[in-house]
Every structure is written in structure tokens, then in C-alpha cells.
Design a binder for these strands. Sequence first.
DNA 1: CGTTTTTCCGTAAACGTTTACGAGAACACA
DNA 2: TGTGTTCTCGTAAACGTTTACGGAAAAACG
Lengths: 341, 341
Amino acid sequence: MASSIHDLARHLNISIGTVSRALNGRADVNADTRQRVLEAAKQLNYAPNQSGRSLRQGATHSIAFMLQPHPGDQQYGEPFFIPFLTGLQGRLAESGLDLIVVMGAPGDYQQERLRRVVETRRADAVVLAWTRREDERIDYLTERGFPFATLGRSRSGGKSYPSLDLDFEKAGSDAVDRLVARGHRRIAAVRPALNLNFGYLFLDGYRKALKRHGIEVDPGLIADGFINEGGGYQVTPRVMLSKDRPTAIIYNNDAMALGGCKALAEMGIRPGHDIAVTVIVDTPLCRYFSPALTAFRPALQPMGRRLAEMLLASLPAFAGPEGTRIMREVWPLELIARESD
Amino acid sequence: MASSIHDLARHLNISIGTVSRALNGRADVNADTRQRVLEAAKQLNYAPNQSGRSLRQGATHSIAFMLQPHPGDQQYGEPFFIPFLTGLQGRLAESGLDLIVVMGAPGDYQQERLRRVVETRRADAVVLAWTRREDERIDYLTERGFPFATLGRSRSGGKSYPSLDLDFEKAGSDAVDRLVARGHRRIAAVRPALNLNFGYLFLDGYRKALKRHGIEVDPGLIADGFINEGGGYQVTPRVMLSKDRPTAIIYNNDAMALGGCKALAEMGIRPGHDIAVTVIVDTPLCRYFSPALTAFRPALQPMGRRLAEMLLASLPAFAGPEGTRIMREVWPLELIARESD
DNA sequence: CGTTTTTCCGTAAACGTTTACGAGAACACA
DNA sequence: TGTGTTCTCGTAAACGTTTACGGAAAAACG
């Protein structure tokens, strides 16, 4: 059905080798011949079969991003990633690479799907997100020597891969600084219960800042919950019922903050009036919520671009100068002051 | 590096043909041999090279979904699609197919990327969304005989492909009915300016319902704008400054509604008090906005599952009974009454 | 025991590319 | 004219699978 390089060769009365060389811009082909080949290719709208290409070259020319909805709130999903993916894909396309997003079922852990992608060689490299503190996937990939990059840090795998993360520690610290400056001293922290790495970073920043201000860290004001609305809803009363009620809460996730605000509302506590609410990692929901939530915003699209660059630099086929191989960057979050604190 | 079927064969001292047959569950292989092969495969963690497989079989075992962020609001993206994709991927996985999401740059039209996917045979079929009234992509695919299914209807391509759509006409009509029942007679409609098909369906329903209620359709109350916040913001004053000001607005898109509400706020008009606002196609943003927006909600995840089934039925390799080949379904939208009307 | 059937497996071709190798022709140079 | 160089192209192997075909051995049957 679809035209192959043989059709093209037959049509032009030359060998498939020459056709291939002409198409791939190799030097040892006559200018006229190349011209004729290019025209014929356009005319028969020939495009090289990707499977054949990959098989021969041992490279798929595509990068996989593993995407997986959180369990729980089905309606919500991951608006967070779209701008990131846009940046990622933009940069990859410039180097002739396709981005394929591999969807997983919500909830089931990515390990199996990742193995499939890697072992069936569906992609030349993968990009991981939601890195955990100890991350099985990272161990697997490093052990297997498969190229990858991560959005987020991890303790796993040493420093052998490019990674780009947000400065959750500084955000946690800044959030506390701001609240203290506004007179708060009882400040709660709510973070996801999975051992997602950013939860730890956030809490570190939170703790250090409190200490810096001479405020004792009260374990009763720290809570972990499911990383979705339900989690925030469930866990918020726990910190609010602490014997000395907090006057501020920092949520380490937008969905948890929204669920938390629902719980607060049911307790008759109004964010922005009776309590200060700050959320780390802004999403459009924070902006539109009422009251609009003060939040820390990442530059997702540039981050996507940058991580693509870092990944490319780590791939032999695209590698730049030796020194630029492995990179790790931590990007700031920008405070967007709104109404909730 | 990665183990091939040859390694496996050598390791077991049998031929690669037998290994392949054992792995693929063919009948003509001894039970013991199969067992040994399976074990060895697990042990050497062998997985068939996807490129080799595809090349030989002429099938990639993967379905592509073309995803493309809208231009404009970078922070927003497409939370709409995630639940849909979850359903789609779930059903496809059950038939051993992978879902790959092919990202495009925001703004640039999908046609080129689609050609790439099709002509390089990266997928066995594609799923299209954001169908337009006349859709170049659909023409291309039908002409080329490439299997596909669409989320949304179109005038293009006849009835030769499976499609699943939401009943925007009924939603538009229901929205009007509800507003009329609540005493409104000056009802505006705002929809996207691109010739996205659902915009037409919505407007049809809107017009018919008005006529049914004996209300004249006022062109001054109908406006098209960019399908993002900016579009809603820009276009809302136009209908509000109509000589006989509307008392209700129906937005055909959530982002446009949010932008519209911003414009209304700047004019000192409060949704839910001074004007009724309804939006067609609910998203989480509608729920969290203040006032919470009355909206029509789709069952995205089941729709994803269903469209996968319809697509599978249209693929020769998976086809069920002859009669079930081509299907077209229109699903209802559920009214979620909130505070804005 | 001879014949037929069944079971199981090896051989080799094919899918569509890319690329190392070599060879003929044209050219340059002395 | 002889020799070396440069251009250009064809040949064929290789990538990792699947599968049609045939054949040897085993089983079934008379």
C-alpha cells in the first residue's frame, strides 16, 4: 500500500542504496540524482518506514514520557504537565525527535509499563516525573543503562542522570517567612503521603524556616494525606483540631489545598480571613478558586525545554562538548500573592 | 546489549523459529519446550524488539492520539482530555495495544504531524479530537484509507469512520430551556471562532430552543471568539453592550467562560446575581470558580473506553461480527446546577 | 510390520531500511 | 600515456522478528 524505498528506486531506475543516501543527505551522491530522488519522494509521497529505520539503526528517534493520572479524582487529571510537555516536545522536535506520551492506568505503579517501553525498545530514552525519594524506576533504568532524565530529584541512581527540579525547599521556606512576617506563628504543613521527593524537600524548607524564626516545630501541625482532593479534605481537620489551632496552612499540592478548603468551609473557617492558606505549585485552579489562592508558580514550559536539552546532551548521538554531559538544575518558584493569606 | 531471540535460542539450544512460536502461543510446539522457553525468557528478561516485530508484521500495535495545546493561555492546557485518555488507554491495553500521545506545538495545525505519523507508520490507527466542521485531517485519512476514529463529528469523510460525540445540540437547547424557565428571554451565546464542529451544534440547539419558546434570535447576542480566556474576555463586552442587554450568557467553552466572567466583573456585573452564566462542557475550573459555574458535564472516561471499542471493531485484526463495524454515537451531557445562574 | 497421521522442530525468506565495501568512470597530474 | 585521485553508484549484508514450508520422529492404525 504505502510506497517503499524500492518503489522509489524502481521508479527512478536507480538502486535503493543511492535513494537512501540521497534522502539522508550523504555526500557521495550526485547533485542531480539527489534532486530527482527528492522530487520523486515528494511526488509519491514517500516517507521511510519507521520500523525498518529503527530496526536497522537501533534507534527509534522518539522519547517517551510516562504519564499517569492519580487515582481518585477522575475529573481532574494533570493540567500541570501539559505546559511542561509542550516545552519538552518543542525542543525535541528541533532535534528531529518525537515525543510519545505513554499513558498508564491510574493508580497502578509505573514500573511495569516502564519495563515494557524499555525492553521492547519503543523509545531511545524516557522522561520520568513524580520522582520518589527512593525510586524503583530510577534504579531500574540506571542498572539497565537506559538513558533517561527526570523532572524532580531522587536519592536513587546517584548523580548519573540529568534532572531538573523545582526548589521546593526554598518555596517552603519562603512561604513560612512570608507568613511569619504577617504575624503567624502557628503554621501547619500538609503534604502528600507517598514518598514523593518534593514532599520531603518542602518539609525541610518549612522546618528550617521555622527554626530560623525561633518557632518550635509542632508535629501535630504536620500531616500527610492522599495527593488529591480527598486527601486534603480528610487531613485538614486533623491539623485544625490540634490543641493550639494553627492560623495558617501551607499545602504542598493544589488538589489537596482545594479539598482542604472544603473542609475548612465546613468548619466555618474562611481562608483569607480566619486562616491563611498558601499552596506550593500553583495551577489554574488556584487562580480561579475563591478566594484566589496564594501560590508558588513554576515556569513549566521553559522547564520542559530545558530538560529536553539536558537529556539531549546526555545522549551520545546528540552529545555536545564532553563537559556538558550530566546536568542537574533546580529552578525557583515564583510567589503569586493572591487573596487566601 | 538487550537480549534478542537469538540469544534465547542459543541459550536453549533450539532454533529461533521454535522460540518465536513458543512465545507467541502457537499450537505446534511441545509443552515442555514452551515451558523452558518461557522460563528462559523471564530469566534473561527478554522482550521482543518492537521494531523487528512491527517490520515483519506490518503493524505497530499502537494507537496514536493527536494532542495539541491551544495557543494562548500556556498555563492552562487540556485537563479535559486526561480522563478521556485514561478510558481510551484502559480499553486499548486490554487488547494489547499501546496508546501513544503525539504532542504538537501549540497553534500549528495538526495536518503535518498527522502525515508524519501516518506515512512513517508509527501507529496502526489514530484518534482525532477537536473535529472541525470540514476537517482536512479526516479527508486525508479517509482518502489514504488509514484507520481512525474521532472524538466529535464532522461533515468530512461521510460516515465511513467510528465517531463518538457529545450532544451539544441538546445541551444548547437544555441550557436555553432552563434559562427560559427561570424567566430569561434575552439570552446570549458565546462560542469558539474556529470552525470547530461542536460550536455549530451548540448554536443549532440554542436557536431551535429559542424559536420553540417564541423568542426571536438576535444576532447581536451571538459572538465568536478565540477558544481561550482572552477570547471570552474580549467578546463578552460585545454582547453586553447590545442595545437590549442580555440577562443570561451561555458559553460554549470553560476557558471562554472564565475570561468572560473577568470581563463581567470589570463591568460590575455579578454572575449569579446580575446575570446568569451557563457553560457547556464542565471542567474542574467551573466547579471551583466563584461563583461556581452551572455547567454541562460529559462522562469522559467512559467515552474514552467506548471510543476505543468502536475503533477496535473497525480494525480488521480485532473486528467483531460484521454488523458492528462502523458506529457513531452521541452521548448526553449532564447538567450540573451550581451558583452562576 | 507397513502405512498413515500427528507432533514437533529447523530452515529460510521476508518485512524496509541503512551502510560498509568495492568498482567503474571521470578527472587531474606528471 | 600512465598513474593516482575523486565522484558516483550498485551490491549485499545486517537489524530482530514472524511464518510458510518441509521433514524427521513418534504415534496411531490396520
